[in-house]
Structures are given as C-alpha cells and as structure tokens.
Design a protein around this nucleic acid. Structure first.
Length: 436
DNA sequence: AACCCGGGGAT
DNA sequence: ATCCCAGGGTT
C-alpha cells in the first residue's frame, strides 16, 4: 500500500465517518463567519464543553461584528470572565474594529486579510477560511498534529515550528475536492472524540486499518512533544480589606495594568511575599511578618488597614507560574483617628523613611529563615535586594486604580477565577471568623 | 526559537 | 498529581 492510497483511505473514510458522527454544536448551526471566528478564538486552549455556554452568552450579547466593535471593553472582558487567556478577548474586539474599518463589517475572504486580524494566526486563519468559506486551507492545531503524527507515523517534535509547516502541507493535500469545510472539522472531531491523547479508541477509529502509528504499536508514544518547563511557584500575600464607615459592606479591589499578566482584570490587592532564592522554593511566610508586609504595602498605596488574621489559602495555576495565596482579612482604619494600630504606624514609618525599609527586610528575612526552608546560607545583600524588590513591586507609581465594591459591583467587573471565588465566599459570609 | 499568557477536565 | 487542550503575541 503506497502513500497515495494511504492518504486517500484517510480522507475518504474520515469524511464518511464525520458526516455520521458530527456533533451538533452551537457554532455549527449556521455558516456565519462571525460565529466561526468567535468559536475558534474561544476554542484556543479551551475545551468544547467549557466553551458552549460562553459562546451562547457571548453571541446573545454581541450578535454581530458591529455590536462587538462598539461594546465597552469592560463588557467584553466580563463575558470572557473565567475562560482565561484574556488577551484573546481584547484581541477579538480589536479585530472586530479592524473588520468594521477595513472591511465594512464583513469578514474578509482573503487569506492575508484574515491573517492580519489581531489574534488570528495560522491555525485560526485556516479554520475561518475553510469552515466559513469552504476554502481548501489547512487548519492545523495540536489535535490535528496528534492525528497526523499517528496515522502517518511522523516522529518530528510537534513543538517545533518546522513541524507545523510540514503538517500544514500534508493536511492541505488531504482535503478532498470541495470538502474543506467538513474535512477540517472531521480532522478535529476525530482528535477530540477518537484519537485522544492518552487512551485512543483505535478499535472504533474509521481509519485504523491504515494507521501506521497503530500498526507499529506507537499510538501511545506519538506525537513526540518536548515537555514544558514546570511553572515557578510564587508565594503571595492577599489583602481582603473590609471597609468601615462609608465603606461598610464593601471590599477593596484594584485593576491590573493594561499590559502583561491578567491585563486590565480586577483583583484583591496582593504582594509577592519573597522571591525564591536561587534554586530554592519560596515557602509560606509566617503570619506576623506577612501581615506587617501587607499593611506596609497597603499603606504605600494610600490605605490604612489593620490585618486581623489569616482568612484562607488559595492557589492559582498559570501555565508558567503558580500563585500560592495567603489571604488575610484586614479592617479599614480611619485615617484621622489616633487609634491607628501600631502595625500601620510602623508601616507608615517604613514608607516615609527609606532607611526603615531595611528593618522590614530584616524582619521578613528573620521570619523566613526560622519558618521556612531557607538555610541561612543566602547572602544578606541578596536577601535584602529580594525583599526590597518585593516591597517596591506593588503599585508604587504604577497608578493602579483602587475601588471599594459591594456584591452588586461584581456584575460589572471582570475578575480572574481565584479572586472571583474568594470574593464570592467573602460576600456569602465566609471568613467572618479569622485566627488572630 | 523561546518565552509569555488561564483554566479546567480527564486520567 | 500529571497531562492535555480547536494557539497567538512578543522578543
């Protein structure tokens, strides 16, 4: 059996299988390029079952390109809340504005024009052109690479750019005349339902007879993929500041900067506890120095708050960082009162007198040495530099926007999931009692 | 080419 | 716990 026959067997049988087994998905009910586009962006790094409710709500709120282009960015982010990779949402809206200005509100059918849209790369461009317009363009993602690497027994590392190019050439050759729309979706459908990463269902696969990977017993060792680096851990101290006086019933939140991690998302104020020393993992910080550091950083941002005690722990996992969060319940203090607690006074001094920062660093370092796995071999200068960077990292000149919010305000502001859960728990009455 | 960017479901 | 996912942007 030659390669030509193997390719034909693949295309014919896969397409036949798809026409019987295709799932009924919301974005497959119409040939609407906007629906295809939105769904493909949402489906980047996110599973179908997760996307469906988000897609339906998004289309209900932004039914066409123009509605998306004209919406406040805040509303778009709120509709994306919980999906992750929030730059996808910002890029999608920026691209909607491109489509309005450059193409009169209609998705272009030219490959270069589609590729030029923000957030649209090689995969998404191919997906839009093939699914929306039935153009014979390959749409190669990790799923397609898994299927092709197994069926054709391709040992190339799929993390390499050159492999994606090779796969695109191959995928393009496999598209049956006039059937790009169904065939590309069939390829992805097979990867999602049959040719799965861990336990492929080879016995029910429509192309198993000529699958070189299965015949060679390699289905579990393909595709070849270099392992990603493990995420670096970060210990962070979070302030859950309970308002008093005119802020009674409210909590202090802030908006992140316009660029970088979680851009423009809202969050509870937090600060890096201590960067890990070289080759070390930053462990939890003892409560006393943690609360001093937190009070100090809040003071630097213009807020007088007294930490009351540890409320809870939380974890937030990114692809490259793990946030280990120590959440402290704090109480807003009246700035005019003589009853500013000692800890806030110390924090004030620390930030008004630069030299006092060293005391903070020393106390944090002492606590870290005794409470964690720091072994004392760390150079004092290096430790001090680390602590200083932690102290100056938050805010200070960044012009972060702070707000006091109640439960109703949660409806408008977009939070990463970890803060969404913490705030929901708080407003539901959790953390009413904390350890002093 | 290497790194940056979330979150959840499956195993 | 570990792995994976219907990737794209930036440097």
């Amino acid at each position: 059996m030659g390669l030509m026959e193997q390719k034909q067997h693949f295309s014919v049988n896969l397409l036949d299988w798809y026409m019987i087994n295709r799932r009924d998905l919301p974005w497959r009910r119409h040939h609407n390029p906007y629906f295809t586009w939105v769904s493909e962006i949402m489906l980047q790094q996110t599973r179908v079952d997760t996307v469906i409710p988000y897609f339906n709500r998004f289309i209900a709120n932004f039914p066409a390109v123009q509605a998306l282009a004209e919406a406040p960015e805040e509303d778009v982010l709120k509709n994306w809340e919980g999906l992750g990779y929030y730059s996808r949402a910002r890029n999608l809206q920026a691209a909607a504005r491109q489509v309005m200005e450059l193409h009169g509100g209609e998705m272009p059918q030219d490959k270069q024009a589609v590729f030029a849209l923000k957030g649209v790369g090689p995969y998404t461009a191919g997906a839009i052109l093939s699914i929306a317009f039935n153009q014979p363009q390959p749409a190669v993602d990790g799923n397609v690479m898994r299927v092709l690497s197994r069926y054709f027994l391709i040992d190339e590392d799929i993390m390499k750019g050159s492999t994606r190019v090779l796969m695109e050439e191959l995928a393009g050759e496999l598209i049956p005349e006039g059937r790009a729309r169904d065939f590309n979706q069939a390829l992805m459908e097979l990867g999602a339902l049959v040719c799965t990463p861990k336990a492929p269902h080879c016995l029910t696969c429509p192309v198993m007879e000529q699958c070189s990977g299965r015949i060679a017993g390699r289905e579990l060792t393909l595709p070849v993929k270099t392992k990603a680096k493990p995420p670096r851990p970060e210990q962070r101290l979070v302030a859950l500041v309970e308002g008093r006086g005119k802020h009674r019933g409210q909590v202090l939140v802030r908006q992140r900067p316009a660029t970088g991690l979680l851009a423009r998302m809202w969050e509870l104020p937090h600060v890096l506890a201590a960067p890990a020393a070289a080759g070390k993992v930053a462990g939890p910080l003892a409560d006393e120095p943690a609360m001093a550091l937190l009070a100090g950083s809040l003071w630097a941002e213009g807020f007088a708050a007294r930490p009351e005690g540890l409320a809870t722990h939380a974890e937030h996992v990114f692809s490259h960082i793990v946030w280990n969060l120590q959440v402290y319940k704090c109480t807003e203090q009246d700035q005019g009162s003589d009853e500013l607690p000692l800890i806030a006074a110390e924090a004030r001094a620390a930030y008004e007198v630069q030299a006092a920062t060293k005391e903070m660093a020393a106390s944090v370092l002492d606590a870290a040495r005794s409470a964690s796995d720091l072994d004392g071999e760390m150079l004092p200068e290096a430790a001090e530099a680390s602590i200083n960077s932690a102290l100056t990292q938050t805010g200070k000149g960044d012009g972060l926007i702070y707000r006091w919010i109640g439960p109703k305000d949660m409806e408008k502001l977009a939070f990463p999931n970890v803060f969404l859960k913490l705030l929901s728990s708080y407003f539901a009455g959790a953390y009413d009692e904390v350890s002093e």
